[in-house]
Structures are given as C-alpha cells and as structure tokens.
C-alpha cells in the first residue's frame, strides 16, 4: 500500500510542478493546491499506514495510527488553504490592475533603486 501512495504522491507532486511552470495564473494556483495534496499524502505515508486504530483514546484498543503526522498535516491543510486563498486574491487583484493573467507578461520595469 505504501508504495502505491508514495508513487501517487510523486505523480501528484510532479504534475503540480508541471502546472506551476505554466503561464496561466490559475494553473499555477491549482498547481500549488495539487502539490499540497501530494505532500500531505507523502507525509501520512511516512507515519506508516493502517497500523492501528483512529488515534482517539479507547480502552479496548492498544494500537493507534501515528498521530503526529496527522496533527502536522492538519496544520498543513489549513495553511495550504490560506496560501491558496491568498494567491487567488493576488491573481485576481493583479489581473484587475495589469489586465493579464499571463505571468510572462506581468514582469514590470526594473526598479531604479
């Protein structure tokens, strides 16, 4: 199972990289979202899969799934949302100011200072 998830995570990350390298802002944002999914999956796998029960204390259970990656991923999910929201609004705003969503055209004049 772990091999499958790792490969899947790798594919997600690779595709995310492809999306992030493209010209359109929306695709870049989607790319970051996809990448966060890939990283979360990879992270979860590192804590070993399906080795125990849900990490909620229970008298009948002695084996729990690793809670630490879960806690870290939970944080990461929320941060990834903040990141997506911020980049989306940034894209929106720059589209309105510059009239383009093509990152190649967004390059401004170099600063004097």
């Amino acid at each position: 199972m772990e091999i499958i998830t790792i490969v899947l995570a790798g594919i997600l990350i690779g595709s995310a990289v492809y999306l992030m390298l493209s010209k359109s802002v929306i695709r870049i944002i989607i790319g970051t979202a996809v990448m966060s999914h890939g990283v979360h999956l990879m992270f979860l796998t590192m804590g070993q899969l399906k080795r125990g029960n849900i990490p909620v204390l229970d008298d009948d259970v002695s084996n729990y799934a690793d809670p630490l990656p879960q806690a870290l991923i939970l944080t990461a999910i929320v941060i990834a949302f903040a990141l997506t929201a911020y980049t989306l609004v940034l894209a929106l705003r720059s589209y309105r100011e510059l009239g383009t969503d093509n990152v190649e055209e967004m390059k401004g004049v170099p600063h004097d200072d």
Binding site: V78, F81, A82, A85, L88, V89, L92, R96
Partner: peptide, 17 residues
Amino acid sequence: TVAATSLFIIVLVGEAE
C-alpha cells in the same frame, strides 16, 4: 480565527467591485 478569516476572505472577494 479560522472561522472569521475564511468567511472574511470570501466576503471580501464576493463584494469586490
């Protein structure tokens, strides 16, 4: 924080322009 920020973001974007 989480509730207010998420809602805040969407309201802000929604009311733009």
